[in-house]
Structures are given as C-alpha cells and as structure tokens.
Design a protein around this nucleic acid. Structure first.
Lengths: 366, 366
DNA sequence: CTGAAAGCGCTTACAG
DNA sequence: CTGAAAGCGCTTACAG
C-alpha cells in the first residue's frame, strides 16, 4: 500500500528505471513489446509517477495558475469552465488563486511565479497593478490576461468586444425607435466600461442625436447607487424621461428595472431596459432581460490555448542571460477580441406611441 | 536572472545549504543573527524555494485539491471564497478540478490522489460515486465532503441544515396563514432535496394538515420542467390552487414566479413564493425573493479547517503496512451541519383574504 | 533498444 | 549553532 516508485515498477517488470522512465515519457526508442509490458505492470499496480519528482527532474510542472477576483461573478465561473476544458485536454491542472485583496495578490507574484510552481499564469480581470506581470512575462513566464480591466498593457490578452457589443445594443434600441436612451454606467475606470460608454456616445451621435448629459448616470456596479441614479432618471418630466436605458451590466439592469417598477413604469411598455453580460438569471427574471452576451466560456478556452502555446514554445529553455529576451515589439502580442451577441428577450420594446413623435429633448441634429 | 537555488543563497551568505534550509524551515536551532542575515540575503535576491524540490524532499505539498461540479453555481463560488480564505492563511494553495463529466472525475481519482500532488481533497457536491474517495480516506488521504449530495457516506463532511431550513421556511409560510402550500422539488436523488421535502411534509402534518399529493411537483432543477409543473399548479380550480409555493431552490422559485405571472397571478398578493439558497440575484428580482440562505462561505471555511486539521494530524507518516489504519468507527467522522437563515423579502405575504377561511382541500385533520 | 550514473533543489538525520 | 552527506523519485545524456 506504500506508494510505488519507478524503482518498484522497474523491479516488477525486470527492467531498469531508465527504461521505465522512457516508457513514461512516450519515448519512441523503447521496444513496443517492452512498453506494453511496462504499461501493464504500471496499470496493475495503479502506479502514478510522483508529481514532485517529475517536476523537479523536468524543471517544469503541468500546472497553470489562474488568478481570479473572487468567484462570485458569473464571468469567472464561465471562464473557468472554458479554461478547464482545454487545460484538461493537455494534461494540465489549474491552481486557483482567489485574490480577494491586495495582500494575496502581492505575495502571489513572488510565491507562485518564482517558485516555478506553475508554468504559466492566467489572470482574470482584477484591479491590481499589472507591471509585475509584464516584467515576469518579459523574463519568459507565459502570462495571459482574460477580460483585463486595464487599458493596453504589454501582455497577451483575450477580451470581449465591448465596443461592438454596446453598439449592437444601441442599434437594437434605436431600431425600436428609441432616441432618448439613457446609460447607467459601470465602473468607469474599467476599460470595458469605457468602451461600452464610448459606443453609446458614438451610436447616438452617428444617428444625429446629441447625447444629453442628464441621461448618463454613474452606477459603479453598486446596487444602491444604481437604483438611486435610476430613480433620478424616472423622476424626470415625462417628456424628458428616457424611453430606454442601456445598463452596462445585467445586474445594473436589474437595479434599473427595480427603480422603474418603483416609479410605476412598466418594462418594456413604458421603458425598455437592455443589459450586458447575459448572466444566468437574465432569462429568469420578469421580464426576461434583453442583453449582450459575452462569450466567457469561449474566452476561457482561447486564453488557455494561448497560454499553453506560450508554454509550449517556452519549453526549450531560453538559455543564458547573454541574449536579451523580452524585446518583443508589442505588436507581436496576441490580443484576441471575441465577438459578443445580442440576446433578444422581452425587456425591450418599441418606443411608447405617445412618445414616439414628440418630446425628444435629446436634441436631434440633422 | 537565472533562478536562484538554495546553494546560491548559501554561497551569498557564506553559510552551508543546511543552515539556509533550517532558516527556511524556521528551525529554532539557528542563531537569530544568522537567521536574520540569511533572510536578508534571500529577500534581497528575491529567492523563493523551488516548489517541486521542497515537495519531493518533504514528501508532501502545500496543495489541496478541490473538486467542483462546474462553476456555474453560486454555491461553488461562495464555498471557494471560504476555502480560499483559510487555505491561504495556512500557506496552502488550491488545485481546482472542475469535473464536468465522469471521465475527468475518474481519471482524477488516480491522478491527483496517488501522485501525492495534493495533501488533501475537498469535494464539493457532485454526482460521481464516492466509494473511491472513501477508500482513499481510509488509506490515509484526508478528504472532506462539502454539501454532499449523497446520503451518509463514511467521510467527514460539511453540509447545511436542509431539514431545519425547510422547516423554517414552512413555519414562515404557515405563520402567514398559508395551509395550501405546494412544493416544487429539486432533484430528489440529492440528499438535500430529500431533507427539504421531508421537512415540508413534517411541517404540514405537525400542523394537522394532510399533504395533498397534487401539490407536490417534480422540478428537477430544470427550468422548462419547473415552469410546466408550476403551470399545472396554477391551473387548478381556484379553491384547490395553492396560496403559497415552497420552491426547493431560488432558481426553481424563479420558474414558479414566471408561471404565476403567466397565469395572471401576482406575487405575493395572489400567491406567495419562497426559495432556497439565497443566490445573488434573489434580492434583485421583482419581487425580491424570500428565501432560506445557505451559509456557503462559512461552509467553505469550516471544510477547509477540517481538511487542514486532518492533514495536520496526518503529517507524521502513518508508517508501515503493519498496523491497519482506517478502522475508524464512522462515529468518529466529523459531520458539520451548518444552520441556515430565513431571509425575509417581498415574495411572501399573508394568505389572500378570499381564501383564508375556505377552500382548504389540503384536508385539515384535527 | 536498454542500463548505469549524475543531477534536479531541497530536507534531514548525523557529526562536530 | 553549523556543516557534510545521503536521499526524496524522477529524467537525461551517455555508453553499450
């Protein structure tokens, strides 16, 4: 019952450790019959090579670190599903770092990365500084950012096309006849929120509509804040009130809907509400939320593939200090931007008839 | 820039590897001044011991495996938060196994466990057979089940008090005057669902109400199914229709609410709906859902503590085959059952007046 | 195609 | 309190 080692397997199969090791590593140099025999012995004895010994000898592990900002987000769960699917396929396991605060994040950088515990790092959007990661990456550690929160960093990344998603959202709303469209923003220090807001503005302008600053409200992803700001929106005189609201996340949309209900407004009859993310409950709430779906699972997959390929190429040791690495022009960095999709459900409808031809104080230019 | 080893640190500080190692392991035998010096050298050079080498030499890792059933569940996210909080405190990291299908689960057993990659295993409710785990545990591998789906297994576990939670839910409903209370069940092969259902039945009976089989509907956690079965409930003649529904999960409750809306019934005016879990969106939907909260984060913490203590005691090697381990009487197994809480929101109200004094075909006994 | 030997970077008795 | 040496379980040239 004591753990078997390669030596035991060697003895049991009447061969040397070397040969057993070659079998373990799928070397073509080993005789097929021998290989089969060894494999059988290993199976019969439920032999599994020591993870630590292999890692030490090979100088690398089949482990990738995944840094996530607390798992309460739908996003993280879905991304992980994608990541797990591909890492598993390649025999890699995931070390999960739930960095809920700055402390763990800081220690992580040293601990994980330098100890060569993981051969690569997947970092899901979080608020900590990325410079240490950039440096690590330049020193040869594979790193991929998923859904990064920051603007451009010199790191490979996979993100959703937030700008295009928001444009699609706005197009949908405008096709329904809406012109007085409000925007309840998320955390504007996040790149994704900036992109979504820029799209909101551009969509309006390109349709010849001058955005009304009063229709932009900061929600900051904080429920109370979202609700309070939405109330302001719905307290506007009837002819200034928005006929539609673009919420920068589904949860934000929930807050908007609550405020609408409190104001005695029906969704979508009196006001349309459109979200972003397509979290699980979006289809469950009343009315089901029309929203922009982010392809999180797919993003996770692509990110894992990217990371694994980086690890692959990095397999042959970079060698001496002599030749400087990390001079990569940032143009070389893979930057995947994944398309989003509009999920039409019931929270958006045509602009109310009584409003469709008048009261557009979101001044029309043309 | 090449990775530093203990040898380098030894050289840099003018000492032997042994002494450096002792410092690394906080041995009291080392001179305080020496220790400070070595520590300084390590810090200055950003030295981090090789994870693999340490693991090999010590024969154990500071890694625990966490097996989860796909991360789309609120539950898993919260449990992980708790687990991460305590493992981190003890310098342990988490290997995440997302077992979405039987295949990965099977290979996992061999791979993870025998390779001594992780020193313990945390298994969050999943559907695969637990026997292999029981065996592993008896062979000395620390294993803790969180929110296990099965009935009693000979493994330490942490679960929520599902029975009591459901009783509390029923009490709340009955205090509001409800007697015709329906139950939309989850997956009845899960222990938690059985417990909740048993509580439903008991609560009714102890109040002298004979449960009406027609008011029990299988939802199986499948949205379509939930909605269809709920529709049947609301299609009953007015005097047989339930005035309240106990849904075995929040998502189930969403389905019930949707069906109610479709049937033109208002929540809670015409029918009360009560859930179980308290997922994030429960507070966001309209009306906010009254539900039973499961203390997932806390459960994660307790489970991690349990596991870590198992690992701790197991630190001294079990030794030879000679003395049989695993004879533990199952009474010894820690089985934590955590209390739930009733979260009162707006989805439950008093029984409709027109119904309160009549139409109780859920026959009263006394 | 197979084996003997050195080495991966630590830890741990054992001396001193 | 510190150092020399063996060992953890693999892998990897190098011979043969």
């Amino acid at each position: 019952m004591a753990k078997l080692t390669i030596r035991d397997i060697a003895a049991l199969s009447g061969l040397s450790k070397s040969t057993v090791s070659l079998v373990l590593n799928n070397s073509p140099k080993v005789d097929p019959a021998t290989r089969r025999h060894v494999l059988a012995v290993m199976r019969r004895n439920r032999y599994v090579p020591s993870f630590a010994a292999t890692a030490l000898a090979k100088g690398s592990t089949r482990l990738i670190g995944m840094v996530v900002p607390g798992l309460s987000w739908h996003m993280v769960a879905s991304i992980n599903l994608g990541v797990a699917a591909v890492t598993e396929q390649h025999g890699f396991d995931i070390i999960l770092y739930t960095a809920t605060n700055d402390r763990d994040y800081g220690s992580l950088i040293d601990r994980v990365l330098t100890s060569s515990m993981s051969s690569g790092l997947l970092v899901v959007s979080h608020e900590q500084p990325l410079e240490p990661l950039v440096q690590l990456h330049q020193e040869g550690m594979p790193v991929v950012l998923v859904n990064t929160i920051d603007a451009d960093v010199a790191l490979p990344s996979v993100t959703a096309d937030n700008y295009d998603g928001a444009r699609t959202a706005m197009d949908h709303l405008m096709q329904l006849g809406h012109e007085r469209i409000a925007c309840v923003q998320g955390l504007m220090r996040y790149r994704c929120c900036q992109d979504r807001y820029r799209a909101y503005l551009d969509a309006l302008r390109e349709a010849g509509i001058q955005p009304d600053p009063e229709l932009t409200k900061p929600g900051d992803f904080v429920p109370e804040q979202i609700r309070a700001r939405s109330r302001e929106l719905f307290a506007l005189p009837a002819d200034q009130r928005p006929t539609a609201v673009f919420a920068q996340s589904d949860v934000t949309a929930y807050g908007v809907m609550t405020a609408a209900a409190e104001a005695g407004l029906r969704v979508p009859e009196d006001v349309s509400v459109l979200g972003f993310d397509d979290i699980e409950s979006a289809a469950q709430i009343r009315p089901p939320l029309t929203t922009i779906q982010q392809p999180f699972v797919e993003m996770g997959k692509r990110a894992a593939e990217l990371l694994l390929s980086e690890i692959g190429t990095n397999d042959d040791d970079p060698g001496t200090d002599a030749e400087p690495v990390g001079e990569k022009p940032s143009a070389d960095l893979p930057r995947l931007v994944m398309p989003t999709s509009l999920i039409v459900r019931a929270s958006c409808g045509p602009v109310p008839v009584t409003r469709s031809r008048r009261g557009r104080s979101q001044t029309t230019k043309a």
